[in-house]
Design a protein around this nucleic acid. Sequence first.
DNA 1: GTCTATACTTCGATAGAC
DNA 2: GTCTATCGAAGTATAGAC
Lengths: 211, 211
Amino acid sequence: MARPARVSPDEILNAAAREFADRGFAGARVDRIARRAAVNKAMLYYHFKSKQQLYRTLLRRMFTLAAERLNAIARADASPAVKIDRVIAGFATIIQEHPVFPAIMLREVAEGGAHLDRPTLAALASVPRLVAAIVEEGVASGAFRAIHPVFAYFSLLAPLVFYLAGTPIRKEISSLHLINLRALSAADFVRAMQQATRRSFAPDPPARAAR
Amino acid sequence: MARPARVSPDEILNAAAREFADRGFAGARVDRIARRAAVNKAMLYYHFKSKQQLYRTLLRRMFTLAAERLNAIARADASPAVKIDRVIAGFATIIQEHPVFPAIMLREVAEGGAHLDRPTLAALASVPRLVAAIVEEGVASGAFRAIHPVFAYFSLLAPLVFYLAGTPIRKEISSLHLINLRALSAADFVRAMQQATRRSFAPDPPARAAR
DNA sequence: GTCTATACTTCGATAGAC
DNA sequence: GTCTATCGAAGTATAGAC
């Protein structure tokens, strides 16, 4: 008694994610999302009341997923430095599992959150809050020097997102021979981020016989 | 014999910069650009043959300006570490002089350079090339540890752009009381970036009596 | 739940007078 | 160089049959 194959809203959301990542909210075409999901437009509007609501649902999911991963890292029994290593690797893992995330994040930052409602913004806000909690824990315990949690958040997340979202443009620039740069894989980039952050967050060695 | 006040293409470009920053290429409306520049649409099309050409002209200017500033820094007589401090401050200065830049950069990275032609991409590519030259100089002289130039470029630029472009969404999140974070001015952020980068790039102290 | 056809709107771009 | 008026294309969303 197999149920007839039903088009799940999930397939629409996946198609929407690719379209919004490629073209942004304004550039995304509802027709194209429907075609990518192998659904007709009316079906899409049956599951989601508008392009905007589809977008909000998608972003709320993204942010919630990231917050759940970060929450697991923050609650684990590990030193702040190890947690920060895991945060960096965790962001990279999420992005590799969902290659559309960086472009969507970049665009939404540029939009100033214009298409987001309160619950979506709340889901978004929990991401920096969790990172800040780890940083503050490390600063309080002396594992880190005095780092501003907001600075920590941006210096951790931004290079990863920028680098990974920038892969297409980097490929284009290098295929036009406009610049010749040594290869740098995503895994290399993560390791470089971890090394740089460990050095950047480390407390100063106490001045010899201070005071 | 004052010339009659003529609408300069520059005013159209300034209006276009704000519109493209606020809404992206796809979301930008030619009518709105014209209205913002106090010009009618036909006038705009008299100076620029299409929305795309207007966009390309704008971005080529942006990248060229940034490359010129970086070039002056790279050629100066200073240590690599000081040059990197100046690169960070220089990016921040350019952004403060042109507050529309971050959003446009974020969007263009997300677009994968889709709207750019070869000369515009060439202007863009010279920015990471100049940063890479400074980093490679520092690595070669022993002033820096072995830093990958591409990693250096992204870890310098991305946090600044992300942080400054994210100001509107940060204000919205904090005005909704979704998160309560200590203030962090742009100048503070620049100083934090400089400190973090100096620590991150510094060479390892030689192991005591190694070998 | 699923589809076709279409109403209504808005946009990029141009024609043509001055 | 500058303007008004408008065209044709393309977009979001819905009506209504099945």
